[in-house]
Amino acid sequence: MDKRRINGPEISVKPIEKKSTQPKNNKDDGIRKNNRSVDNIRPIFIKPNVIKKANGSAYYEAENIKIICGVYGPRSSKRSMVSDEGTIYCEFKFAPFSCNKRCGYIRNAQEREYSLIIQQAFLPAIRLNLYPKSSIDIYVTVLENDGTTACLAAAITCISIALTDAGIQMYDLVAAASATCIKGNICLDPDASEENDTNSKFMLSYMPSLKQVTHVLCTGKMEAEQSIEAIGICIDACNSIKTVMDHCLINSH
């Protein structure tokens, strides 16, 4: 027996294999493979206060996307930076088992980039002037990935709930929505198979009450008119996500 490693139990069972879901297409528009219309987002479930040790936490689920997030702070900043305002630190990680291809324990370039995007998306929303010399640390783990851009958008929505749960003062909640372009149509909340078919990704984070955009991410092939259209569609989606978030926060209060 190898004592240097964590050994599995002696008795093991065969893991349940994931059945490949047959693409259904009952919708008459015929643009999307799955059973959704272009402006339809997956139903969202959010639960705050799931990690006892964290100041604030939230769990997010939308069909196959599963994300857990913990917020620690405001706590004394360990980094050697003098600032009159608080700082945000974020660690975004895909769990090794979350994607189709196993990803490593060490954060890769994409995860680092997403961490920065999350920091940028929350900078205008948190009242950092109230937290001098402190840092707010956000740790996000994607437990199941079904569309990378959709995961990033879901993470931002999830963090909003966790920050509010931690009692951190914010100007507004931040909601985020993702989109892609399929055959010239803007489709909201793309899943993994749709993401593989196209090479355009769009993500927008938005403060619904203040009507302000905090971050826009647009990569791949997309016409200027399409991206403008996508902004409008994503803002509408964020407004509907906001009602889910409000509902969740008021119920759990």
Partner: peptide, 16 residues
């Protein structure tokens, strides 16, 4: 738990 913006008062946290 509140802040002022453009002559209006907004909430900045969840609560009563």
């Amino acid at each position: 738990g509140t802040y002022m913006r453009n002559n209006y008062i907004y909430s900045s946290t969840v609560g009563d």
